[in-house]
């Protein structure tokens, strides 16, 4: 059975490659900072399960200090010039899209076809991790296709990957940092504390007020916690089930479903959802860190109003 461990091994080797080539890159004055940072990420993927909790904690502190004290610098690995790229684009034409299509096709194949496959009663891949395993398989297939079809040197896979990871830099690790923060917040009881404030102090005595408190509360709480999954149990248990379902007799399926989607409106507006909101501006080389959030706020606010109205109309028929 292919497990998540195989994906982590591949990711660990990739980050180790980034660290190695960072160390060899004399054109980057901060090359040792980059080397140390990506080597720690590689170590986490390759040996994280053997480091122990405190060991992993020290590793995380190392990453935060390297990033926070400015030890990372943007590298400029040798790559093709815009002129050369235009020339290869003219030569290969739409064949350039083939590897880019291999990726989604293999992911879809993995998720839809390979996931249920069993060999001798043992699943081919860990069903809980099928998406990530399929993605890893798809990347291997697509990179191989790209190197052969477009005649690229194999080392380019690591060097070009490093070029991109260095444009994102330390922000690449922010989503994982925030996921870990969510766990610490849960341990400290932050969610319960905020949920208590909402249920104790906000008006829920009319049906419309209660619907608004739940929907807006889901969005606001999600903005503070970074994801709707943390907000859902607290506010659904505190407001939706006792008041909207219990007191006002609403349909729990409508309330839960639209409640979660109200939380997603919050996800669109918070820097704490870093993988959706802060990594993309870095990837797209937009100087304003909050540019994607700003582009999303009007849609998110309108959708929050729509969700509140939809819940009020649909849940109490």
């Amino acid at each position: 059975m292919i497990r998540l461990g195989a994906v982590y091994l591949l990711a660990g080797l990739m980050f180790a490659g980034f660290a190695l080539f960072s160390g060899l890159d004399r054109s980057n004055p901060k090359r040792w900072g980059n080397t140390a940072f990506w080597a720690l990420v590689a170590l986490s993927f390759l040996a994280g399960d053997r480091l122990g909790d405190l060991g992993n904690g020290v590793l995380v502190l190392g990453l935060a200090l390297l990033a926070g004290l400015g030890f990372l610098g943007r590298s400029h690995p040798e790559t093709t010039t815009p002129g050369e790229r235009m020339a290869t684009a003219e030569r290969y034409g739409n064949r350039l899209f083939v590897p880019a299509l291999v990726l989604p096709l293999v992911v879809a194949l993995g998720v839809l076809v390979l996931k249920p496959v069993q060999i001798g009663g043992v699943p081919l891949m860990d069903p809980k991790q099928a998406t990530l395993i399929s993605l890893a398989l798809a990347v291997v297939a697509a990179v191989a296709t790209a190197l052969l079809l477009l005649r690229q040197p194999p080392a380019a896979a690591v060097q070009e990957g490093r070029r991109l990871v260095d444009t994102v830099s330390w922000a690449a690790l922010l989503p994982q940092f925030l996921a870990a923060l969510g766990a610490v917040f849960a341990l400290a009881g932050v969610g319960k504390e905020i949920g208590g404030l909402v249920t104790d102090y906000l008006p829920v005595d009319t049906r419309f007020a209660a619907v608004s408190v739940y929907c807006v509360g889901m969005a606001a709480f999600t903005m503070l916690m970074g994801n709707a999954f943390a907000a859902f149990p607290v506010l659904t248990g505190g407001v939706a089930i006792p008041i909207l379902v219990g007191h006002f007799g609403g349909n729990p399926a409508v309330i839960a479903s639209i409640g979660m989607l109200s939380g997603f409106c919050g996800t669109l507006m918070t820097p704490l959802a870093a993988n959706f909101n802060l990594v993309p501006p870095a990837l797209l080389e937009i100087p304003d860190r909050y540019a994607v959030i700003k582009a999303q706020i009007p849609t998110a606010l309108l959708m929050l109003i729509v969700n509140t109205v939809l819940m009020y109309v649909l849940a109490f028929r």
Binding site: N56, L59, L103, Q129, V139, V143, A146, E160, L164
Partner: peptide, 24 residues
């Protein structure tokens, strides 16, 4: 606790496996 949660959430950063493909 932070280290344990960081280790448990490595799948979040495993998505960067697509970067070499995009770069090439």
């Amino acid at each position: 606790a932070f280290g344990k949660a960081f280790n448990d959430n490595r799948f979040v950063s495993a998505a960067y496996l697509v970067l070499p493909l995009v770069g090439v």
